[in-house]
Write a protein that binds this DNA or RNA. Structure first.
Lengths: 213, 213
DNA sequence: GTCTATAAAATGATAGAC
DNA sequence: GTCTATCATTTTATAGAC
């Protein structure tokens, strides 16, 4: 009814941008940056391809915007949980893991882009390098705090342990995306507990059948 | 001298195939399957694009051939080291890790393709699913043998530990490719030792400066 | 803010000669 | 075994109207 003769639907720029970001995130998560065309994204948004480029000046600008937005949302969500409160390394990491478990699409976006962007010519190359450093530093920080409180052995090298935990998390995500029966968070927690010197902990590989929701 | 008038260079089919596989492996490792064009590969080989397609009927056939060849070579190399001999989980995995450390291009090929192939529409989707199952089973097997010999706690779930170790290895590879200063094998071995109930082991994050070769 | 039209380049694949 | 020629698509991006 509110349409104009040609069937065009105008939207506030901000809303349209959000919509494009959501659709693009999905597409990039599945086929990667290079395997996704602007026309495909535009069609799913319900807009012409030049219409899309009105909001993001290029394909590169789009992928960067997608990654930055999702990254920010995610970090804020978890950090907000512990605002002011003191946290352990395990609690903090498990909060991320559990959140990830509810958002396979987001995990897939970052897993695929992280690998694709190893190419220095990839538009998100620097983004991922810096993000990785940031995350590793944050975890090393948490580990040091745990050590100061006697919750982790002080013989542990914080930077090394942080690199290992990030690696494990990334690798588990890949496994889980390939085979969702994998109990990503269970395996991760088991490993964290072992790091806390509880070597006898065991977890099943596959999640137990869920009770009815 | 042995050229024909047009500058064409004929080669035995087998040799040309090998050459193409090598060049293609490199290209797919850097830009992925979707980011690599046949023309690009052909040019680096020194052949026309239809000339390339004479040896591999399609782009899909090429990526599959590349992955299968590299996978086979690699598995054989490591398995040959332990032919007949008895091995521990740690020794076997470390042999892989050390070999990988000498072949960043190969590691990159598999890391990038593993992520890209999460898409069910990717030609190597099934290849990676099956490869992953095979590797996890093999490791679980080694863990069981270690448990039988008392080298690993029998409270450990072999399948779960195998999934965790594969994940850690994959994740460390990604970290290492992004930042070669990471001591991939050192971190991996530290984790394996912890699994063997030596919680006090420490490794530096960065490799010590190398003595002159 | 969105469209149509279109440019300009690249891509995977085929036909047919040598 | 390799090439030239060529096709049908697809892709990113721009120009300009509404």
């Amino acid at each position: 009814m509110a349409r104009e003769e040609t069937g065009r639907i105008r939207r506030p720029a901000a809303a349209r941008r959000e919509q494009i970001l959501a659709v693009a995130a999905d597409a990039f998560a599945i086929a990667g940056f290079r395997g996704t065309s602007l026309a495909e994204v535009a069609q799913k948004v319900g807009v012409s391809q030049p219409g899309l480029l009105h909001h993001f000046s290029s394909k590169e600008a789009l992928i960067i915007a997608v990654l930055q937005q999702r990254d920010l949302q995610d970090e804020q969500y978890v950090e907000a949980q512990f605002a002011g409160t003191e946290t352990t390394t395990r609690e903090w990491l498990m909060a991320f893991c559990r959140r990830n478990e509810t958002q396979p699409d987001l995990v897939r976006l970052f897993t695929v882009q992280a690998a694709e962007s190893l190419d220095p010519a990839h538009p998100a190359h620097d983004f991922f390098y810096q993000r990785n450093q940031r995350v590793r530093n944050r975890i090393a920080q948490l580990i040091e705090a745990d050590q100061a409180k006697g919750r982790l052995l002080s013989s542990l090298d914080p930077a090394a342990a942080a690199a290992e935990l990030v690696s494990l998390m990334n690798g588990l995500q890949l496994q889980w995306l390939r085979d969702p029966a994998i109990d990503m968070c269970g395996l991760f927690e088991a490993s964290l507990l072992r790091l806390e010197n509880h070597p006898n902990t065991v977890t099943p590989l596959v999640e137990p059948p869920q009770a009815e929701a």
